[in-house]
Amino acid sequence: MPYYVYILSSGIGGTLYIGVTNDLVRRVYEHKSAAVEGFTKKHDVKRLIYFEQYEDIENAIRREKRLKKWNRKWKIRLVEENNPNWSDLYPGIASP
Rank of each mutant, 00 (worst) to 15 (best):
Gly92Asn: 13
Met1Glu: 12
Glu37Val: 13
Arg26Trp: 04
Lys69Trp: 03
His31Cys: 06
Lys75Pro: 01
Val79Asp: 01
Lys75Thr: 00
Glu80Gln: 12
Asn82Ser: 09
Ser87Ile: 06
Ile93Lys: 00
Ala94Ser: 09
Glu52Val: 03
Ile18Trp: 01
Glu80Val: 07
Glu81Val: 04
Lys73Val: 00
Pro84Leu: 01
Val20Met: 12
Leu67Val: 01
Asp44Gly: 05
Val20Tyr: 02
Ser10Val: 07
His31Trp: 06
Asp23Pro: 05
Ser10Asn: 07
Ala60Cys: 06
Val25Ser: 03
Gly92Pro: 07
Arg77Ser: 08
Glu80Tyr: 05
Asn85Phe: 09
Asn83Lys: 03
Lys65Glu: 13
Arg63Trp: 06
Gly11Val: 07
Lys41Cys: 00
Leu78Ile: 01
Ser87Tyr: 11
Lys46Val: 11
Pro2Trp: 01
Leu78Ser: 01
Ala60Lys: 00
Asp56Tyr: 10
Asn71Glu: 08
Arg62Thr: 07
Ile12Lys: 15
Glu37Ala: 12
Asn71Ser: 07
Ile49Asp: 11
Ala34Leu: 10
Asp56Glu: 15
Leu78Phe: 03
Tyr90Asn: 11
Arg66Ser: 08
Asp23Trp: 04
Leu24Gln: 03
Ala60Gly: 04
Tyr50Ile: 02
Lys41Ala: 01
Ser9Val: 01
Ile93Asp: 01
Leu16Pro: 09
Glu58Gln: 15
Val25Lys: 04
Tyr50Glu: 06
Asn82Gly: 04
Trp86Ser: 05
Val5Trp: 03
Arg72Glu: 07
Tyr50Gln: 00
Ile76Lys: 07
Lys75Gly: 00
Glu37Gln: 15
Asn22Met: 15
Thr21Lys: 02
Asp88Tyr: 02
Asp88Leu: 02
Arg62Phe: 10
Asp56Gly: 12
Pro96Glu: 15
Ile49Phe: 06
Glu81Trp: 07
Leu89Asn: 09
Ile61Asn: 05
Asp88Ser: 08
Leu89Cys: 11
Pro96Asp: 15
Ile57Ala: 14
Glu80Ala: 04
Asn71Cys: 03
Arg62Ala: 13
Pro96Trp: 10
Lys65Trp: 14
Met1Val: 09
Ile18Val: 10
Arg62Ile: 03
Asn71Ile: 01
Trp70Arg: 08
Ser33Arg: 12
Leu24Asn: 04
Ile93Ser: 01
Gly38Thr: 09
Leu67Glu: 03
Arg63Thr: 02
Pro96Asn: 11
Thr15Ile: 13
Thr21Pro: 06
Glu58Ser: 14
Tyr6Gly: 10
Trp74Asn: 14
Asp88Phe: 02
Tyr90Val: 12
Tyr4Arg: 05
Val20Ala: 10
Ser33Met: 05
Arg66Val: 02
Ala94Tyr: 00
His43Thr: 10
Arg77Lys: 15
Ile57Asp: 14
Phe39Leu: 11
Arg47Ile: 11
Glu52His: 06
Gly11Asn: 09
Arg66Glu: 13
Arg77Trp: 09
Leu67Tyr: 04
His43Cys: 07
Arg27Ile: 05
Thr15Met: 14
